[in-house]
Design a protein around this nucleic acid. Structure first.
Length: 683
RNA sequence: GGCGGGGUAGCUCAGGUGGUUAGAGCGGUGGUCUCAUAAACCACAGGUCGAGGGUUCGAGUCCCUCCCCCGCUACCA
């Protein structure tokens, strides 16, 4: 950290309070941020680590309705669980708040008003879907329907679950209100938009001053700038959330993504109040000699590198983030995590079976720093058993055991030092510097490797010096080697503290040293301090080895949770809505002959088909190019919806659509089982 | 279609501004040792650095073309 900064404000992305913490969260945000913060604390820097639960948004209210409880009950449940999980993993927040607290609502409302006053909020009337039965506008996920892009019937109002595209609810085909199951109507409503567009030049100027940021962040922003930032709607017609603090705006709340980052500020306020100095938060948020760092996953780059900084600029009086270490994603056994499919490792379940430190170590060692990485149970086992148990843990154990055995558990005196002794003492003296540099640059994996390498050198030193022989031939020399080795153990306790804090504390106790590891000084980690004659504590095994059977158990658990064939195959679920015969009869399904077929240029999926229905010839556009070559279709018979209203697709008028079955793997066209007269009605 | 990121030893990955025999961890093989959690330490693995072409005295590292994988984005059933 350069001298320009007097203090550090580190934030970790607010986890969404609708489920337990899983390994994706940890690898991408909380383990890296906690390691960084613990390192900074040992450096004796003025640092606070701020986080909290993100408790607004539609996913929570829908869940509440499904379970027949209030949104508050949902978030209470998960907030408590998440907070506890973090604690048990040793993720050391200085404050873990929640966005449903009054302090956050007040902070957000004040923020909103200030930005409004500064002229960065624009009011606009838009069309939105409205559920007449429950008398409310349907924000985001309160509406679902058929995705106009991929045809999935599970598309939500904010995003299609299947193809992942963001959604304008108005473009959904056959939209249905999640609340009533009824089709909604379109009504006008007014909303507030944040004028992100206007701040683009400022954002660009600001980012020019940060060439040191990670490529993923810079590239994302560059792309966004080239596309041009747009005004963002920051209010919703909902009851759950931070109320818009304006007359005549009842029934409107501030969009969850506007209030969530403000949660960092309100969480800091809460911390300051608990400290007994309510204004202390300002020091961290408003003084330019504070270094603000946001730890996030790559999915949050937009909100932390563009939206929130723009909000802070618009508001004025705040510092901007100095760095935004955005991590990529961690997959599980080669597949993307999916909480809905339960393809995940949940922290509470992990902690039932294993200790916290091995997970912290493995996630840091394998952190998705520059690209997505993969969590593999077997690799987790390997790394634990070899790096932690065999290299690190065993080294400490050898040293302490020998001291116990040959020197009655007392630190032996140190005689004259050999070149090898000096070598390793120098190594631990310099280690804080080299490892620290990696931490300062957010090179987590490198830092972890360097840290482990130090214990490897310890083993090498023992191997070469062979104190077990020396104690018989030259006890004084043997004592010296063990004395030096014990200093290495002590250094390792400090050096490993950011990564494996629980283990470090165990070493501290084994060495019977005063105080706690977290109160030591990083830079002093390798300075010898042990007094000859100092009695050690009880030796304990630092890392047990994980047996194949327990790893297999975890793998089996995944198999169980692995989606069944049907769920995974992409077969659409049955629709609940019933239709009458008359409604079915409104569809004019016909047998048609394909006369011509050609690809629509510059598209991946579209074929232009000339078809004949009886005597009627017409053109339709169909999205089957990935499954059928044009020549495969000419001469074939297909079934089409003849009375679908015409649509312009890529400038081509399409009059009708063909029927095809989608089994999630491919599309299969519907055709009469036997040749049939063209134009025959299908019913 | 546009933008971005990847494709390096069996596996997971490192390899600023081009330069002697392309590196690490895990696994595998052989050896040393016995203090220790049957751990440690040493040696070996000889990988067309996705494919092809080019620039250069010299390219994994720069340029062009192409092929795969992954994100974002556009258009679109």
């Amino acid at each position: 950290m350069s001298d320009r900064f007097k203090r550090l404000l580190v934030t970790s992305a607010l986890p969404y309070a609708n489920g337990p913490i899983h390994l994706g969260h940890l690898a991408g945000v909380y383990v890296p941020s906690d390691i960084y913060v613990r390192y900074q604390r040992l450096k004796k820097r003025d640092v606070i680590h701020i986080c909290g639960s993100d408790e607004h948004g539609v996913a929570i209210t829908i869940r509440a309705e499904q379970e027949g409880v209030s949104p508050q009950e949902i978030v209470d449940r998960y907030h408590a669980g998440m907070k506890e999980s973090f604690q048990r993993l040793g993720v050391s927040f200085d404050n873990y708040s929640r966005t449903s607290l009054p302090i956050h609502h007040e902070t957000t409302q004040a923020f909103f008003l200030k930005v409004l006053e500064k002229g960065f909020l624009v009011r606009k009337t838009t069309k939105q879907l409205y559920c007449t039965k429950t008398q409310q506008f349907l924000a985001d996920r309160y509406v679902q329907g058929t995705c106009p892009y991929c045809g999935s019937e599970e598309a939500k109002g904010d995003q299609c679950e299947k193809c992942g595209r963001p959604m304008d609810p108005l473009s959904l085909i056959n939209p249905i209100s999640v609340l009533s199951g009824e089709p909604p109507e379109i009504r006008e409503t007014t909303h507030w938009f944040f004028d992100l567009k206007r701040l683009q030049p400022d954002l660009i100027e600001w980012q020019k001053t940060h060439p040191e940021w990670k490529d993923n962040v810079k590239n994302y922003c560059r792309g966004a700038f080239e596309e041009g930032l747009q005004e963002r709607c920051i209010t919703r017609d909902l009851r759950w959330g931070v109320k818009v603090p304006l007359e005549g705006e009842e029934g409107k709340v501030i969009y969850v993504w506007f209030d969530a980052p403000i949660g960092y500020i309100s969480s800091t306020k809460e911390w300051a109040i608990a400290k007994g100095d309510p204004d202390l938060w300002k020091k961290y948020w408003c003084e330019p000699d504070t270094k603000l760092v946001h730890f996030i996953g790559k999915d949050n780059i937009f909100f932390h590198a563009l939206m929130f900084p723009a909000m802070l600029m618009a508001h004025g009086g705040f510092i901007l983030p100095d760095n935004i270490p955005a991590f990529e994603f961690m997959n599980l056994e080669g597949r993307k995590l999916s909480t809905s499919k339960n393809w995940a490792v949940w922290l509470p379940e992990y902690l039932e079976a294993f200790e916290p430190d091995p997970l912290r170590y493995y996630l840091a060692y394998n952190a998705p720093e520059n690209q997505d990485s993969d969590f593999k149970w077997q690799e987790f086992q390997n790394i634990n058993n070899s790096h932690l148990a065999d290299v690190f843990g065993n080294f400490v154990n050898r040293v302490v055991s020998m001291t116990l055995r040959y020197f009655d558990g007392k630190v032996p005196a140190r005689g004259a030092l050999s070149a090898e002794d000096d070598g390793i003492l120098n190594l631990i003296k310099n280690a804080p510097n080299t490892v620290g540099e990696s931490y300062e640059n957010f090179h987590l994996r490198e830092a972890v490797s360097l840290t482990l390498a130090t214990s490897r050198m310890g083993n090498l030193y023992l191997q070469e010096q062979q104190p077990w022989k020396l104690v018989k031939e030259n006890p004084e020399r043997g004592g010296t080697v063990l004395n030096v080795s014990l200093e290495v153990c002590r250094a390792l306790a400090v050096l490993f503290h950011p990564i494996t804090p629980f283990t470090s504390e165990k070493i501290w106790r084994m060495l019977n040293l005063p105080g706690r590891v977290e109160d030591q000084e990083w830079d002093q980690a390798g300075i010898p301090v042990l007094e000859p004659g100092h009695a050690l504590g009880e030796p304990v095994i630092l890392f047990r080895k994980f047996e194949d059977a327990e790893i297999q158990k975890q793998l089996d658990k995944l198999k169980v949770s692995k989606p069944t064939e049907e769920e995974d195959s992409g077969i659409a679920p049955f629709l609940d809505q019933q239709v009458t015969y008359d409604e079915v009869a409104t569809l004019d399904l016909r047998v048609a002959d394909v006369l011509e077929a050609e690809r629509v240029k510059k598209t991946e999926k579209l074929l232009k088909l000339k078809i004949r229905i009886g005597k009627d010839e017409r053109t339709i556009v169909a999205g089957v190019a990935q499954y059928y070559a044009p020549e495969d279709l000419v001469g074939k018979q297909i079934i089409v919806v003849a009375n679908l209203e015409p649509a312009k697709i890529r400038g081509i008028e399409s009059k009708g659509m063909l029927l095809a079955a989608n089994d999630g793997e491919r599309l299969t066209l519907m055709a009469p089982a036997q040749p049939c007269k063209s134009g025959a009605r299908v019913l």
